[in-house]
Write a protein that binds this DNA or RNA. Structure first.
Lengths: 239, 239
DNA sequence: CCGGATCCGAATCGATACTG
DNA sequence: CAGTATCGATTCGGATCCGG
């Protein structure tokens, strides 16, 4: 099954042979959020053909990136190996890099819980979080709902069921959430322009990119400072 | 020509749509060394079909990653845009990640000047270079020859012609090299095991992984400390 | 429902040949 | 030097099917 070789003895080449096939890095992105069942991955990657998903999972296992873990009486999950988890900073950096040229969504584009979770991680500003007071948000984008807790020690994101309860904690990085969030707000894909700094929180509300559901709206300012990906001006000139 | 979309509105997805096609990241790796002609790229990627190379270059231009620059009376070169150059830390990190699972070379595998140049950059330890005295190496691997200059201010690598002179300075990141190197040595692909720390310099010479051509052999120790990618023990256990 | 395997047409890739 | 053109080999995508 040795994938088509590039014929070079080089670290970059080896990396690309391990994770460069179509869909592979998106599978890894989702697994960076937490272990996932085959079906979870399929739902999180709505356009992936099932044969491709199973082929990639097999290849990633052979490459030592992914591991298959049976759950007692509960099916099985795929998870990253320690080697696979070393890709986290790379995937986050790629997400930041791609963010700058995302443009506006295609009509067919969806936002999934895992992709939004990772997007928030890519945008997370550790130093801002360390200097600002803690905050506890509930964020709704399209039909995904996230509980986002920020304090000086870092970032914690839990995925909520449409109903409002966190999903299966067995599978999760999701620790149990407690109490009520300080701010609940809903946004569309235009939230990207809040994170890029193109829009202030006030402007975002004005343009109906974002709406406050409940809680202290002034926290949006803190949110925007905690999650931020500056657009490099050099990039815009080039594009 | 909009490449097959993954159907998600996400930074990682956008990044993979821009640079995730087969061969794209290897083209970028080579362009990170310096601007290159079409023919240079073809030689540095011996197994790439020419139609794929031209297709990728077109796509990378549309994506704002690569730029086509005519040279006065001298043909033209491709170079990274500022946006493309932002990929440097990502490609270096991928190279380090892949390095750990490179294993031994396939019989067909080649080592190119650009891939070796980038490999040295991935392995470069800034802090070791800052504390160690400067050094000036000439390194031969297979039929590529590099002049590698290290001092506290950083790393400079020039590609030498088989004859021994640096190649066309017009195209180069290659500044003119001066004087004689402190150490000239030749190695095979096993140099990887020196860089990983599996082999000491003495053992590398012993096993004929590496041979000193001229100069002060004790500098090999300094070389090994300057260029180092530790193998994560966790990885080995998993693999 | 979970975790895939199979089949088949469409698109892409790879190898070679050829051209301004 | 800098690519196109062509064409068979592979892979991908979409749908269906299957065993537990």
């Amino acid at each position: 099954m040795a994938s088509r070789s590039y014929g070079q003895y080089c670290g970059v080449t080896t990396a690309v042979e391990l994770i460069g096939e179509r869909w592979a890095l998106l599978i890894i992105r989702d697994l960076l959020v937490g272990p996932r069942r085959y079906t979870d991955l399929k739902q999180g990657l709505p356009k992936i053909p099932t044969n491709i998903l199973s082929t990639r999972l097999k290849e990633l296992q052979e490459g030592g990136v992914v591991r298959r873990v049976p759950l007692l009486h509960c099916g099985l999950v795929y998870e990253l190996t320690p080697y696979g988890r070393e890709l986290e900073p790379i995937v986050l950096a790629l997400g930041r890099w791609g963010f700058q040229e995302m443009g506006d969504p295609q009509p067919e584009d969806v936002v999934t819980a895992d992709s939004l979770t990772m997007a928030l991680r890519t945008a997370f500003q550790t130093d801002a979080a360390a200097t600002l007071p803690p905050a506890d948000y509930e964020l709704h984008v399209a039909d995904v709902a996230l509980r986002v807790q920020v304090d000086a020690s870092g970032l914690r994101i839990a995925q909520l069921q449409p109903a409002g309860r966190p999903i299966d904690p067995r599978l999760g990085t999701q620790a149990s959430t407690s109490g009520e969030p300080d701010l609940v707000f809903a946004a569309g894909p235009g939230i990207r322009r809040l994170i890029s700094g193109e829009l202030t929180p006030a402007a975002a509300i004005d343009q109906e990119v974002l709406a406050i559901v409940s809680g202290d709206g002034t926290l949006l300012e803190r949110f925007a400072r905690t999650f931020h990906i500056p657009i490099d001006p050099g990039v815009v000139l080039v594009a």
